[in-house]
Nucleic acid binder design. Structure first.
Lengths: 322, 322
DNA sequence: ATTGGCCTGGCAATCGTTTGCCATTCGTTG
DNA sequence: CAACGAATGGCAAACGATTGCCAGGCCAAT
């Protein structure tokens, strides 16, 4: 900027304003300065800008396990929207650890404008505390005072139960994910409510399981022991694991067991058999989270507290008549 | 730091050194300062540090399409290794565009210590040019002067051809990916060499196709027209797409067509039928790229120019006797 | 003609560290 | 005993922007 100032004869303060506060200087002044900037191939120094302005232009996105395809969509969505708004995206894998989340965010709080927590493992208190240190938006985790976008899988669960009941299933199992998982609890609640609305439906829960594919083996074995004819599984990853194990054990899907997953991740449509699942607008959730965060940053007023994104049941071949 | 200085009675310069250059100050001084730092809950300001030292502690990782599961492994690997070394990872999706790569890197060059390019679409010249602006490591892209880690799929291709030939296939097709893709060209070369070493093997190429799943439909149709009995496909994503379409068209895999993929991505083991593929140490590639980059940053001497990572053929159920 | 307010642009402090250079102390060696 | 070098700590100048405050010019309204 000093070079531009020398070249044009203006002061660096004017240069700064011309480049970042368009309205603050005369139009022709600005043009001169912009020309000079182009000519000198000027790129603003992010660090210096951040140091004096306090705004870093960086947003962290924390996922709990980057290997889980569910997050691919989230990351894609946040990336798009952040880029469009001129922000950079810092990606962190918290390895499913709440402490890691806190540690990372606390350490980086000065170098971030905000953070998006996809699937936080933190307690409400910890989250609320963190939200005072740094602007936060959560995904699939509803905490008072923290703006959040949630995927309304619970509502979809109703559809899934309808679907299974209409196929003649009366003995249903919910295969539970990690008990610390908020969506897992929400799904189980919804499942209970849905089952209750049909008088003659029996519902059981097995688990918790880890929500990763390998856990599917144990889950499938437990599932077989229940003698039920259909299940709804915490997420697709686990469901795919279950599918594999059921086949190993000689059960046919859906003839012997109907399986419904959640999320419709990459792979749900080409596994064997293709998975009936609750399709979630994952990428949109990422985009929406960014929108909320940006609103939080610019307006400083807390935006809509909670955005609910609808899901729908996608019927493929893992469910059938009892 | 000023607070620490006041509290302990040392100068800020001493505080700075105590905290970042362990050997430079007396041990007891350092302990005093560290105590004070802890007590004051001190967190260094990344921007300020970067501003004065020129080191940002941030490395960019560019992928060409974040939805491609191949990159999940890369990202995971880089993340691990970068974290361990105290670096933050800035993730960019270049959306398969070379201009985007250049634009991003050029803009961010001052705020990055280095960058890792997974699957660059840039020309050699452009890459070499970029490498003068910012320390660079490429993955699967070998350019003179730029350290690189390559996955030795070409060598694995030999194994794949062996495998197919031993199953009685004599009419082979290589299903090509994007022609700008460096690994694609390398794989085709290797395929030709491998086929040539067997006198009576016929080899054809079809494509190029995009390397995304939807392209599999067109690829499968073209494949059927060749009348060949086996193929090696540019990558697993495309191969999975092909599998789906072949089934739609009523062909059985492997009875009517044997299919070999490349990379062994997430999903290759549970698609239908499970895919025979060249297993690549993807995550390791990410880790290795970081190691090269860090070596480049600290030693300032160019490290090993090219690291080749071995692959092996994983036989599943998409290949069988002719 | 005076007053007041908007539009522009400049001055200089500030953001929080790092680091080159210098001064002091102290132990060692010839 | 002199001289020298290593170890340690302080001073102050960067690093490259942003921004609060001020001043001059100009125009319109009184």
């Amino acid at each position: 900027m000093k070079d531009i100032a020398n070249l044009t004869g203006y002061a660096t303060s004017t240069v700064s304003r011309a480049l970042s506060k368009p309205g603050r200087v005369n139009a022709v002044t600005r043009m001169h300065i912009e020309d000079a900037a182009r000519q000198l191939n000027y790129t603003p120094n992010t660090q210096a800008r951040a140091l004096s302005s306090g705004r870093t232009g960086t947003v962290a996105v924390l996922v709990s396990a980057i290997t889980n395809p569910f997050y691919f969509g989230i990351i894609r969505g946040t990336q798009q929207q952040l880029n469009a708004a001129g922000y950079a995206q810092l990606l962190f894998d918290t390895e499913d650890s709440g402490e890691m989340e806190v540690a990372m965010l606390h350490k980086m709080r000065r170098s971030l404008d905000g953070a998006i927590l996809a699937a936080s493992r933190l307690s409400e208190a910890a989250l609320a505390q963190l939200a005072t240190e740094i602007p936060l938006v959560t995904i699939n985790r509803n905490v008072p005072g923290v703006p959040s976008v949630a995927i309304d899988t619970p509502h979809g669960i109703g559809q899934a139960v309808e679907h299974l009941v209409s196929l003649g299933h009366r003995d249903l199992v919910y295969v539970s994910g990690p008990s610390v998982s908020w969506p897992n609890r929400a799904r189980w609640q919804a499942m209970r409510a849905a089952a209750a609305s049909h008088g003659d439906v029996r519902l059981r829960q097995i688990g918790p399981f880890s929500g990763e594919r390998p856990a599917g083996s144990a889950a499938a074995d437990a599932l077989i022991n229940t003698g039920a004819s259909a299940c709804v599984v915490f997420n697709d990853l686990l469901a795919i694991g279950i599918l594999g194990r059921l086949m190993e054990r000689g059960l046919r899907v859906p003839a012997d067991m109907s399986v419904v997953g959640c999320d419709d991740i990459f792979g749900a449509d080409f596994c064997h058999p293709p998975l009936t699942t609750l399709t979630a607008p994952i990428e949109q959730a990422g985009r929406m989270a960014v929108s909320l965060l940006l609103a939080l940053l610019t307006d400083k007023a807390v935006p809509r507290r909670l955005v609910l994104l609808p899901t729908h049941l996608t019927v493929r071949e893992s469910t059938g008549h009892r």
